[in-house]
Design a protein around this nucleic acid. Structure first.
Lengths: 203, 203
DNA sequence: GAGCCTATTATACGATCGTCCAACAAGCAA
DNA sequence: TTGCTTGTTGGACGATCGTATAATAGGCTC
């Protein structure tokens, strides 16, 4: 009998498995634990393989940022798709999805903190700009569906994003300070406030 | 001539200088740059002295968290003291002080990210709870001055803190997305919303 | 000035880091 | 089966990490 010492993978498959392993390590151990050796161990390959697929650890983390950011975006989009077709219900679903798994998750929080801590490097900063721009665009589109005046959309999207980010942050950091339901209630109140304002100004 | 190789300091003075040096290193280089050697170099002492005053690097960072958190609290209190004596002006000053130096500052942001990234360690988590509890208490007291109903105070403080944290975060992370003035405007709108709600419910 | 206390220095130690590279072997082509 | 391509391994390398410790010397007391 001859058990192979290793199996070859399609290059793109191996790349994705390394990126996924990096995400798991970041979620479990944070930025300081994401070493080449720990990632290779998590992926079940030898440490040297990381250098074969990525220019360096920074490039790998940057690609993991892009992949994780897209996963979050997909999860938010799924929440919108599962909501009532009413525009107000759709934007409410988008906003409050941040307060339930898989987004309100201690591991995802640790991963996100790791990305922020690397935001000084230009390679990571570029990813960051692209990801957050897509979030703002998604939210702005939902607000447009609700009939929010174009002039109000930009600042409303900024305020809503900030409130949701802040609530998500404290929900992950201090789970005892308030409940996910309370976060949903607060976000819903703010949304109502912006819609009332819009209705008044167009009356 | 005989220049002394080093000068002794009062133990507490030396401790504080090491804590201050740690804060500067964290602001400049983030969590990954805050090594014993880098901190000692910044403080102008030898690396071994750190071990003489602190049980380990984690203890030093925890004390730096406490000191930095108190500095932020003091800066916010100073902004309140400099505002009009009108209660609404005072809470507005407290809220919007986060969007100007020294709080809206890239270095402070890097420092704070470093603390968050260590929030898994119990030593840091305890500091975190204490600091954020004091912030919430300060804000709740200002809201009470404004006559906000006790039943509303808690959730209002949570929402206001979340919005301000979120705006502060994006202001530091993506300075180009919106201006500090716009952040002030958004925070002021939310404050007005909570005061109107309170006035309506008590009418 | 002598002597003591201890703040301070300088260095050693083992562990781990990112990167690099020569050798090996899986899997396809002929 | 033979040979080639290249995905993959495993260890070497120098740098840096946190911690521990013996030696040094500032600064006070007597």
């Amino acid at each position: 009998m001859s058990k192979p010492a290793f199996v070859r993978s399609e290059p793109d498959v191996r790349r994705q498995s390394l990126i996924a392993a990096t995400g798991r390590v970041l979620a479990r151990d944070g930025a300081t634990g994401a070493s080449v050796r720990a990632i290779a161990l998590e992926a079940g390959v030898s440490p040297g393989l990381v250098g074969h697929y990525f220019a360096g650890i920074d490039a790998l983390v940057a690609e993991t940022y892009a992949a994780t950011g897209q996963q979050v975006r997909d999860a938010l989009a799924a929440a919108v798709a599962a909501a009532d077709p009413d525009p107000r219900s759709r934007v409410a679903a988008y906003v409050t999805a941040s307060f339930a798994p898989p987004i309100a998750d201690r591991g995802l929080f640790a991963t996100w903190i790791a990305f922020w801590s690397l935001s000084g490097k230009s390679q990571i900063a570029a990813q960051h700009d692209a990801i957050y721009q897509s979030y703002r665009d998604d939210l702005a589109a939902l607000l447009a569906e609700c009939g929010l005046a174009p002039a109000e959309r930009r600042l409303a999207a900024i305020a809503i994003t900030a409130l949701v980010d802040g609530l998500w942050l404290e929900l992950c950091l201090l789970p005892g300070a308030f409940t996910p339901d309370e976060a949903r209630e607060l976000a819903a109140r703010q949304l109502d406030g912006y819609f009332e304002r819009s209705a008044n100004s167009s009356r």
